[in-house]
Design a binder for these strands. Sequence first.
DNA 1: CCGTAATATCTCGTTCAGCGAGATACTTGG
DNA 2: CCAAGTATCTCGCTGAACGAGATATTACGG
Lengths: 150, 150
Amino acid sequence: MPDHEREMEIVHLLRAATVELGLRSARFASRNGMHPTDVRALIALMDASRSGSEMTAGRLGTLLGLNSAGTTAVVDRLERLGHVRRVRDERDRRRVLVEIDERAVELGQAFFGPLIGRAVELLEGYDERELTAIRGFLTGVRDAAAEASG
Amino acid sequence: MPDHEREMEIVHLLRAATVELGLRSARFASRNGMHPTDVRALIALMDASRSGSEMTAGRLGTLLGLNSAGTTAVVDRLERLGHVRRVRDERDRRRVLVEIDERAVELGQAFFGPLIGRAVELLEGYDERELTAIRGFLTGVRDAAAEASG
DNA sequence: CCGTAATATCTCGTTCAGCGAGATACTTGG
DNA sequence: CCAAGTATCTCGCTGAACGAGATATTACGG
């Protein structure tokens, strides 16, 4: 049996980081009268908005691992808080596009901005080869986690 | 305004990885008749066990961001499934130590083993300096996320 | 075209995770 | 030895998310 200690330490660090990030977004949620799922939905919407793609209700539900009833409920809650609006897709009128409100984006930036800033700061201390290593590791983990059932 | 594009790409990668890891553990949960919180509890228990420290009910609740009632409920559920057992702490009889069952550990390893294996495999492709960079970044993110209110 | 199948969302009724309030049991310090 | 503090549990309740199925729209074979 080989000695994987150095590698396992990093695996545990990754897990510890995801746990802390989860707790942080839970705190953001409860401070703003939301639930963790609502925050995850907002993040998915910001991501879509940033990459210029539009988000349908169904796709959002899939990303969150919810069924259709739960998806409707999430969008209802966010709409009630004014963080998103429903827009009928005119190209396929079965679809409902969910658009995030600019003020919700600002709210998120106010809370997560410092954390993101700190991460960027950390990354600025690395050279090109180190950044490539970090990028490669995270990409690999993301893809391995995304792979279907095991 | 400086050009943070390369750094932001990595920040988004980190988030994408945490999202995928979250979905993966949600799938593990529902496949084994558990809820995401139960899985998070098991992970915290494995972590404690691995580092040789014991876990009390209260500490577990804090780690999960639950109040005492919710904590009791999580431990009840896990105990009912045979994944943990309650043991009165004889040194301070107010406390309840939560011990994880060996079979629960095996269950987790069977599901997450391949993913961890893949991560270790990826890490084996990096040299010492690259590993240090990855470790440093993850440590920094974890600590930044853990810092108190903003 | 027309009808059937497929797709997207929503409604309804139900279950149970997690909360607040407070009870209980034990420990510690004056 | 009593009061205050700490750890866990009980009870009742709210609401997130589920399953089943309704509704509206699109796609497709004949």
